[in-house]
Amino acid sequence: MLKLIFRRLLQMLLIMAVVSFILFLVFDSDKFKKQIATAELGGFAVSTLSEEDYQKWLAKKGLDVPFHERYVKWVLDVLRGDFGQSFEKNTSVASLIGERLINTGILAFWVFALMIPLSLTLGVLAGMKEGSFQDRTLSFIAVFTTSIPEIATAIILTVILALGLGWLPTKSAMISGWDWKQLVLPVLTLVVYDFGYVARMTRASMAEVMTSQYIRTAVLKGIPYRRVIMKHALRNALIAPFTIIVLQLNWLLSGVVVVEVFFEYNGFGKLLLEAALFGDVYVIQAATLIAVFVAVLSQIISDVGYTFLNPRIRFS
């Protein structure tokens, strides 16, 4: 098991090295240097800029240094914990990303806090009696909500709850301080979009357990149905959903981009998009590496967790 974890972590480091190298190479092109110049000085200024002045500007930004020197310097800096300076926001990348990650972390915490109990309960209820009325209704609701893309869910919820009923603010920029009301719509959007998938996976797992021999034995022994479900079925049925829930972390990182942009919530996804559009190399580097790190880590946790939770694999 330790060997497995070690191998996966090594693979993760390799992947991150490859990713950072490719990203650096991409953003070293003349096109992107021009893009940064345009974003900072304005398109008109860049088009009238003489070659000499452009070179001076590059030197000021430290972009005239050859690629390999910059990359080596960047890698050494990162190993020392320094992620460089943002071109756009003029602050250190580490503090910028840290602040945005906390915001996204709060969002993610509430999404999981609502989504996990909701989807597990619904999944178990649907899977208890396969093909029954409640199973079919819940399955249909689950397909329906997952089919509506996040952007559409965000719109529908905004129109109903914010524009129609006026209960909640439409934007979540939190300009005048922290406000829990502004967090409700983004969280709700992500929960509505995501719970269906987890619920369906839970349902499939539960339905499979309910057809197994030991459940039939337990029912035939005359154990109350409630206890059969709670004590016998749930333990095995919840192993598969565990891995799925951990993997949702990966999904959340791409899901938050559109939700954060739509609601103007200052989180990690919005930062990533802004940095990509601006050509802010160091911010994109750091943000992408964090995204890849979280994604791979969640894959490792789900694999290891599955092995650990399932005694049939653990002891074989």
Partner: peptide, 19 residues
């Protein structure tokens, strides 16, 4: 494919299309 799969999808889209 492992390298590509370790990206959150939206991040990959943004990087490629921005380039």
């Amino acid at each position: 494919s492992n390298v590509l799969l370790s990206f959150p999808v939206m991040v990959l889209y943004i990087l490629i299309l921005n380039y």
